[in-house]
Design a protein around this nucleic acid. Structure first.
Lengths: 248, 248
DNA sequence: GAGTGGTCTAGACCACGAG
DNA sequence: TCGTGGTCTAGACCACTCA
């Protein structure tokens, strides 16, 4: 993790990182204000801010407008798997609080492609937001066409990334037999950055998920946004000996 | 995609994005220099640079030191799947040129955990680098313990993300039956940014892969780094009806 | 050498949160 | 009201690329 700091901001980041690692600043502690760091390191504010941005991207620091910069409470990884039992991997679902908002929306182009329906089709949308200010957290939007089922709100059993919707589907007799997930990396938009409490320059993991039943219909789709510094999306594949189909 | 530009840099980015979308600047064209954009938009250089950074993160623009900013040639998505036949998904492997470098390394802590071997264990490392300056590209490092097999270099049949190593393993009688992949999002280090030809503020997809045989041994592991704006990692899961194990 | 992007300085004003 | 981080300005010097 030790790198040669060829830039001013990198050496400041290295020094702050070292101090955090040595517990000079503990989890939850407030770091000195940017103006103070300017005088401490003899650098200008953009340089100090760039150093803090590095630490924020690593998940070591949270910056809150009007309040200050703080050492991050919890650097634990969270998991989202594409298995049907997504949350079984490493989450303790009991103590993760999310809020669920349900409404009916019309499919835009992206959702239409994902769900393989015509644009404008009626969908039920469940939005899962981190409720507790404590980390870790993720943002989930889960869609089910009205033609498949009419999912009611499930506040009591809400799971952090919306897996209760698929549980409810199973109870309604809709069986998911195949799940295709796509993961990519990008920067969050302003709304996502606010919701996830990360900076706009922090990488997030963007996951699109499609759940299909035996007939090939897409019965559920989800858009997940997870903070990159505290999230791994875990996938498991078991093989049917298909290696040779890409040979020479 | 149209957003209300509440910030100066965002409105500049919106305007440039619109011009690119209207083909006023075509793929490969050089954008005006930052100093010229300053006078065009009446903004300072940091603001103009922030606008260009937004477009770079979207994969619309490439910035090259000493040369200029250019409209990106190819915005096509590339795919990396955790299926054994990873490249069968969407790549035309024939026209993607990579260079392969092979050497023997000792397992560091990260590799030791990934391969489930003791730190210091001898591994063969294959590094796959984008050879052609054309996009898209990815960075792959593939590891096989010497105790599993002695993989030779396979320049002729090199696949962009190192899947030829697993093909070679199969030919040597080592059969992969299970693949576990972890994907996360982060910013690249300086070396990765250079290799992938992306800015240091551009999100990259970080994939760790473990391949196991029937006995549970990890026979291969890979570290992949893909530019977020042009990469989706695709995963498929077929279900065995395990939904209820996470029910409240 | 000319032109480009990469980094840095030294300020300014604004938006937000808390007392 | 005050301190905080968020944004922006107007410069400066350096590293790199190419003619």
């Amino acid at each position: 993790m030790i790198t040669i700091a060829s830039h001013r901001y990198a050496s400041i980041a290295d020094d702050l990182r070292r101090q955090i690692a040595m517990d000079l600043y503990k989890a939850g502690d407030q770091l000195p204000a940017e103006t103070e760091l300017m005088s401490v390191y003899g650098s200008s504010r953009p340089t100090v801010r760039e150093a803090l941005a590095v630490l924020e991207n690593e998940g070591l620091v949270v910056r809150l407008q009007g309040r200050g910069s703080f050492v991050r409470q919890n650097t634990q990884m969270i998991y989202a798997a594409n298995a049907l039992a997504a949350t079984a991997h490493g989450w303790t679902t009991g103590d993760v609080k999310v809020s669920v908002h349900r409404k009916t929306v019309k499919a835009d182009d992206r959702l239409a492609a994902l769900l393989r329906v015509a644009p404008g089709t009626s969908l039920s949308e469940h939005v899962y937001l981190p409720q507790d200010a404590a980390l870790p957290c993720g943002l989930a939007r889960v869609y089910v066409p009205h033609a498949i089922a009419d999912i009611d709100t499930l506040v009591g059993s809400a799971l952090p990334l919306g897996d209760d919707v698929r549980q409810r589907l199973a109870e309604l007799g809709v069986t998911v037999t195949k799940v295709v997930s796509r993961a990519s990396a990008r920067l969050p938009n302003d709304e996502e950055a606010r919701t996830l409490r990360v900076g706009t320059g922090t990488a997030v993991l963007d996951v699109e998920r499609m759940s299909m039943d035996a007939s090939g219909r897409v019965v559920e789709a989800a858009l997940l946004v997870l903070p990159g510094h505290s999230s791994w999306a875990v996938f498991t594949a078991r093989s049917a000996h298909r290696e040779r189909e890409v040979a020479g």
